[in-house]
Design a protein around this nucleic acid. Structure first.
Lengths: 200, 200
DNA sequence: CCCCGGCCATGACATGTGTCATGGCCGTAG
DNA sequence: CTACGGCCATGACACATGTCATGGCCGGGG
């Protein structure tokens, strides 16, 4: 029997997947979690064989949970996400995920992935993997990504500068470099693009 | 037997809900759609009793589909959404939705809602309904909403002005009014807030 | 009728934002 | 060592953005 922990902040999909997985004869859903912190706590307590982690969750996201569990619990993490971009896949693998599945796949395929991962294999969605190979890593430098992140909700230059302990001019310079590299003309467009590609 | 059409762009949740609903003895899922256009086409062809429509879909969203079907097909629409805000509920009801359920509810409750709606009742999630009553409608004027919509992806003032046939100064003025009413200091924050509340 | 209040539109002014040229720092290649 | 290239940081300048005061338009009371 494969013991599975299921974490997703959307109650509807969580309950639906739990019900379906319980119908499988060899899978048992031993815990459900609605956010990252709950997932970590439950995983530590119950030591499930496989953790199914949604990427977008309040507090800790799926990748952060994977990272924590990998250091503390002998379990294998599968990251499930709506926005399956190469950048996201990279972050998940770097955090030690054993599986990566986009939510565009069917629930049925999920059970198959769980079995393979429980058996010790790694599983990465082939389509995203192909994208990731033919795609270069973020053309932005670390500092540029920092600035983008700090400004993702429309913060002003001065606020970003304070939060990163920089001169306002420096922030503007980084932003300017980003805009040039991404071929856009406003911060907001740069943020949208970077979010879409999983760079921040 | 209640004949149901299921529309959601996320394959995983669509397949999971379809599988679960098919387990109910009195419910039959006669069609699945991955976007609004498919949903309309299938509904016209199959005349289901109930249409379960995700709000966020590429092309036509759930509310737009509801609007179209209400004029052409004798079916009852239930809008399902991740972002269940009073503004969204209002739009859904205005479009003629017979039901409104947030994705935080469990899949099991969904079947109950389908039965009630199929029986001719209307169903609105009680929690959101309560919010909607204690909440005033958007404090923004029509034109201000237009400007916000036209600038939601970081378009420049000049672009917004052109797309609405206005002088740039006018656009700035509307934006300024919005920022004051919403108590924020940048366009992007205003857009985020308005999107969050379902005003645009 | 006239006044008033809301909404829309506009242009001048202040402030914040993007561009550019420059310099420091550090690791690598010659 | 020195030269070079990448990254980071900065300030001066041009431009876009937000603020403000003003005026036109329309509909609902006195």
């Amino acid at each position: 029997m494969i013991r599975v922990l299921l974490a997703d902040d959307e109650g509807m999909i969580r309950s639906a997947l739990a019900a379906l997985l319980r119908l499988e004869p060899d899978i048992d859903v031993v815990a459900e979690a609605a956010d990252g912190a709950q997932a970590v706590a439950a995983a530590v307590r119950l030591q499930p064989d496989v953790c199914l982690l949604d990427l977008e969750m309040p507090g800790l996201d799926g990748v952060q949970v994977t990272e924590q569990l990998n250091r503390t619990v002998p379990t294998r993490c599968v990251v499930v996400t709506r926005h399956a971009r190469p950048g996201v896949l990279r972050r998940a693998l770097a955090a030690g995920a054993a599986g990566f599945v986009p939510k565009s796949r069917s629930a049925h395929e999920l059970a198959a992935v769980i079995r393979r991962v429980a058996a010790g294999e790694r599983y990465v969605d082939p389509e995203i993997a192909a994208d990731a190979l033919s795609d270069e890593r973020p053309p932005l430098t670390d500092r540029e990504l920092d600035v983008l992140r700090a400004g993702r909700h429309g913060e002003t230059t001065a606020q970003i500068a304070r939060s990163l302990s920089l001169a306002p001019g420096t922030v503007r310079n980084h932003v300017s470099a980003v805009l040039a590299k991404l071929q856009v003309t406003t911060r907001q467009q740069a943020v949208l693009l970077a979010e879409e590609r999983g760079w921040i």
